[in-house]
């Protein structure tokens, strides 16, 4: 096809080169072109936060970014955090605290929290509430998520 963009980027440490339609959203590219379906799309207008991924380590809404904007950048998705047999302490904490129910919004919370926890190793409840206030969850009322963040901070501090 004409007008295709030659995209090269790194996702979860793997380099990819793909031709994409310039208007292809990063979320669609990750999910449907690379098969990394852990990133979820909940509102397509940057409000719910479910599609959050890390771009060069900083959280961004992949539904508001065109794939070509990620050209020559490094992306981390939830698949890059840990595996079923070797979960990240943040993922383990989410499980222990029952911080997820349907689990649809969870990848966005994890990717939002990962860099934040590194900068806030001992967060207060109020700080946590503010940190996750841009991610919507309809199941948990956030309480167990907050418990999980505290638990994750402890786990991460303990190494």
């Amino acid at each position: 096809m004409e007008n295709q963009f030659d995209l090269s980027l790194t996702v979860n440490g793997v380099s990819y080169q793909r031709e994409v339609d310039p208007r292809r959203l990063l979320s669609d590219f990750l999910r449907h072109d690379l098969g990394l379906t852990g990133t979820h799309v909940g509102c397509e207008h940057g409000v719910c936060g479910a599609c959050t991924v890390l771009l060069d380590g900083a959280p961004v809404r992949s539904c508001l970014i065109f794939a070509p904007q990620a050209h020559e950048h490094e992306i981390t998705t939830v698949e890059g955090l840990g595996t079923i047999d070797d979960m990240h302490p943040l993922q383990e904490a989410f499980r222990e605290a029952h911080a997820l129910q349907c689990g649809f919004c969870t990848p966005g919370f994890l990717t939002t929290l990962l860099p934040w926890l590194e900068e806030h190793p001992q967060p207060s409840e109020e700080e946590i509430r503010e940190a996750i206030s841009g991610n919507l969850c309809r199941c948990t009322g956030y309480q167990h998520i907050i418990d999980a963040v505290k638990l994750a901070a402890e786990k991460m501090a303990a190494g």
Binding site: R31, H32, G35, L36, T37, G38, T39, H40, V41, T77, V78, E79, L81, G82, T83, I84, M87, Q91, F94, R95, E96, H98, L100, G103, F104, T106, P107, L110
Partner: peptide, 21 residues
């Protein structure tokens, strides 16, 4: 009891409808 469904949901490995291609 900790949930058995969580590891898949937490690592992006759970199948939702839009993941069916």
């Amino acid at each position: 009891v900790k949930r058995v469904e969580d590891p898949r949901l937490l690592t992006g490995g759970a199948l939702f409808v839009d993941d069916v291609n």
